[in-house]
């Protein structure tokens, strides 16, 4: 697909009422900002009380995420499970066209981190409507991953695409083993020193949670007008575990950072068979005191 044809595709989306979020310039990079906002806004109204009655407020607007890298596509698989029974997330999902993007050709897409490594068949394990490989300028190779994706290209009269069958989110072998390893280490041995040391360094700013494509904690809040919201929250907030009467169950920075890791590598693994981490390194880059998840995981592995 040439740049010209891409412009046509974008116009096609816009004509159909989609808001197009264009990330094509980020090919080959993991952007600083994760994509979770598009499904799970930082503050989302979930309903309102009007004259003492419940009124639903689902966001059914249509959007296109044009150019999502493979690492963030992987993170969507966690969200799909966590929010499988969530009408608000599902309403966003139903109205979102996901277009993946890589700067490498299909068979050369590679990514390696402490938790996630992609092999040759990566696209078969990711969920998307369209996927673009852009190894050279002015030339996108097109793949479809859903009926919606096929329909779009057919409507546009674009025929030069290949369909990729989604065969489920989980890779066999290496990936799962790395995650299982970390889980078992965390479950069976609580090495206090790791968390005490981190507790001394961490300043509880929560930046790691905002940039994390897998952090999905929230709290439910009401305003004085009768609107109810679901808002991002994070386990570094002191009131995170606070119940009425000012009693807290999590007291120290060390406990908070332990909670963060335990959630990602134990609770998420137990429940969703995948860790709450795709190894994107955003948290390490965002941390103002230089806590590096690679080093923490190494310490856990060696514990």
């Amino acid at each position: 697909m040439t740049n010209r044809e891409m412009e046509k595709l974008i116009k096609h989306f816009e004509d159909k009422g989609y808001m197009v979020h264009n990330f094509l310039h980020q090919a080959g990079k993991i952007p600083w900002h994760p994509f979770k906002d598009y499904f799970f806004p930082p503050k989302q109204q979930i309903f309102k009380y009007e004259k003492g009655k419940y009124i639903e407020t689902l966001d059914n607007s249509k959007q296109v995420l044009l150019g999502v890298n493979v690492v963030d596509l992987k993170a969507f698989q966690l969200w799909d499970q966590v929010y499988a029974r969530d009408p608000y997330y599902q309403a966003r999902l139903k109205n979102t066209i996901i277009v993946g993007l890589s700067s490498a050709p299909k068979d050369k897409i590679a990514y390696k981190s402490f938790i996630l490594s992609f092999g040759k068949d990566v696209l078969e394990h990711l969920r998307f409507d369209l996927f673009l490989c852009a190894p050279t300028k002015n030339n996108y190779h097109c793949y479809t991953g859903s009926e919606d994706g096929q329909k779009i290209l057919d409507d546009l009269g674009y025929k030069d695409y290949e369909h990729i069958n989604f065969i489920g989110p989980f890779h066999e072998g290496q990936l799962d083993k790395a995650a299982i390893d970390i889980r078992e280490k965390l479950k069976n041995r609580e090495v206090k020193k790791i968390w005490d040391d981190l507790g001394k360094r961490c300043i509880e700013c929560g930046r790691c949670t905002y940039v994390c494509p897998c952090c999905y904690c929230f709290e439910i809040t009401d305003d004085e007008k009768g609107n109810r919201y679901r808002e991002w929250s994070n386990c570094f907030q002191h009131e995170f575990s606070e119940v009425a009467g000012d009693h807290k169950f999590i007291h120290s920075t060390a406990q908070r950072i332990f909670f963060y890791y335990y959630h990602k590598f134990v609770r998420d693994m137990d429940k969703y068979n995948m860790p709450g981490c795709v190894g994107c390194n955003r948290c390490s880059n965002a941390c103002p005191v230089g806590i590096d998840i690679n080093k923490v995981i190494k310490q856990i592995k060696e514990s």
Partner: peptide, 14 residues
């Protein structure tokens, strides 16, 4: 614990 969502998602009561 601080139960917020009630369905095991929001993490406050973990």
């Amino acid at each position: 614990r601080k139960m917020s969502c009630g369905v095991g998602v929001c993490q406050h009561c973990a």
